[in-house]
């Protein structure tokens, strides 16, 4: 770990000022400390934001409000969240381990970095870690890498389960920073690698996530997060699918779909949503939606199987929410 100095911020203003001057926020530390130990991350100064009052979780008229510093486990066991947004609870509980969920914050979860093993070690070329050095995964071990949103510079998947659920649910991020407050869809937090894989998100220097808002939706209560993996727990998704669906009289009125483990960012499946909306619910619709979901997949040498797995996972997730008939 590279040496750094440390400051526990007492107020948001102080934290933002420190961060604007080059400090780096630390919340749960489960991503940052891990990568600092590998020296993949080398902040000079850490700003501990855990004292800031950003842990509240509550429901208001227009939706669910989650403080950026709420812990994954707190949100997962919040009864109001379970009632209005079961998809979020599902996605949280399927992630990491109970211990990590006790530590990890919601804001940090959205900003966790890729799990590509070449990124996590200094001795392999990696454009994301060291721009211009090359991508080891493209010609190397890439069975865990992405099908969508890749570039010739980087093919790593975004690992967050929660982000998949939030992107599906059209959640919005509230930030405050040196340039003032902003509000934008969670989906707009992410950038695809393109030519600049080292830039993963759209936050300005010093900009702090303070809150997540998840709008109510008629689809929200019939929702599932299906995570497929080789180990029953404590593993990132091989493929995952978030579904929230409003079915009325056998017709899909409104639906939200997103996938994890397959994209360089949480991958919203808008094409599949379009296929489903207004359709008679049931197998045929699920199959068509799944077919649409794999459209445009660009598999690598090692991850062809994910195309078929995604197709099947979409079908299954839709069945779980909308019935198998």
């Amino acid at each position: 770990m590279h040496p750094f100095s440390f400051h526990a911020a007492a107020t948001e203003q102080e934290a933002i000022a420190e961060a604007a001057a080059g400090g780096r926020y630390i919340a749960g530390g489960t991503t940052l400390v891990d990568l600092m130990r590998e020296e993949v991350e080398r902040p000079r100064r850490l700003i501990d934001i855990n004292r800031l009052p950003l842990r509240d979780v509550h429901v208001q008229d227009d939706g669910l409000v989650i403080g950026a510093l709420a812990r994954m486990s707190d949100v997962a066991r919040d009864p109001a969240t379970a009632q209005v947004q079961p998809l979020i609870v599902d996605a949280l509980v399927e992630g990491a381990s109970p211990q990590i969920r006790n530590m990890a914050s919601i804001g940090g979860n959205l900003l966790q970095r890729v799990r590509c093993s070449y990124f996590r070690t200094l001795d392999a070329p990696c454009n994301k870690r060291t721009p211009g050095s090359g991508c080891s995964a493209i010609g190397g071990a890439n069975s865990g890498h992405a099908l969508f949103g890749t570039s010739v510079h980087c093919v790593a998947t975004h690992p967050s389960d929660l982000a998949v659920a939030l992107v599906a649910l059209d959640a919005v991020i509230l930030t405050r920073g040196p340039g003032g407050a902003r509000r934008f869809p969670v989906e707009a937090l992410y950038r695809m690698p393109g030519e600049t894989p080292h830039l993963e998100h759209t936050l300005e220097p010093g900009e702090m996530i303070v809150e997540i808002r998840v709008p109510h939706g008629s689809y929200a209560r019939r929702a599932r997060y299906l995570k497929v993996r080789d180990r029953a727990s404590y593993e990132f998704a091989v493929v995952s699918v978030a579904v929230a669906m409003d079915i009325d009289g056998g017709i899909v009125r409104d639906v939200r779909l997103a996938a994890g483990g397959v994209g360089t960012m949480p991958w919203r499946l808008r094409g599949s949503e379009a296929v489903l909306t207004g359709r008679q619910s049931g197998r045929a619709a699920w199959r068509d939606a799944a077919e649409r979901a794999i459209d445009g997949a660009q598999p690598l040498v090692g991850n062809h199987f994910k195309v078929e797995l995604l197709r099947r996972t979409v079908v299954r997730a839709l069945e779980m929410v909308g019935g198998a008939a």
Partner: peptide, 24 residues
């Protein structure tokens, strides 16, 4: 998982080298 180019054990961590957990 061995990188065929240089013999690097690619999944050299407890998160990536999977062994059974309790739920398995």
């Amino acid at each position: 998982v061995v990188d065929t180019r240089d013999g690097r054990p690619v999944n050299a961590s407890m998160a990536d080298y999977l062994v059974p957990v309790n739920l398995d």
